[in-house]
Amino acid sequence: MNAGLVWVLVGLGFAVVTLQRRSLAVGLVTVQALVLAAVAFADARGPHDLLAAVALVVRGLGLAAFFLLVIARTRDPRLVRAIVPPLRRVALAIALALMLGWLIPSIGLVSRDAERGVLTLVACGLVLAATSRATVFQVLGVVLVENGLALAALELPGTSWLIEVGVAVDLTLVAVVAGVFHERIFTEFGAGDTDALRSLRD
């Protein structure tokens, strides 16, 4: 994959980490998935590669629709602030990405840029999930991680369709379960804030 595209994907990842508006973050994650899908279509050499690309498009748009529906149904009265301020989150993501880069010298991909891009997206996703209080952002963290895996899959010609379809199924399940929980939390506490769950601890 073109190095520039990889860094576009990484840039989108960092942008999601800094955001506080849920709908904007959903939009950026969807753009990321569609960029991956476009690359998959462009590099497709057979029906399997096309299947991988279709899986990326379907899950990207499907998840976007689902998240936007959830957001529309659960309008937060005020912004749910993250545990850590945006710039510090970015710093944490960079630190984790560098650490992962040192810990995992190679994951077997052809392109070194793609390897770094995968690890950075995984780091962004993990930091977003760990430092957010809003349930939607926590799920978007998981989606970022999965986008990283999708990028890795595109660098493994021949088997990418298996990974992409698997990722799509995984994410659909995660998103549906998380969506149900989010709505339940919202109904109980009046905000999609996982910090409210602390009160349930005995």
Partner: peptide
């Protein structure tokens, strides 16, 4: 260790993964 915060649990997972990767490295 059980704080009730989802973020803390994700942090635990990250810490365990990093420690294991460090052990391999």
């Amino acid at each position: 260790m059980q704080s009730g915060s989802l973020g803390t649990y994700v942090a635990y997972l990250i810490a365990v993964t990093v420690v294991l990767l460090g052990a391999v490295r």
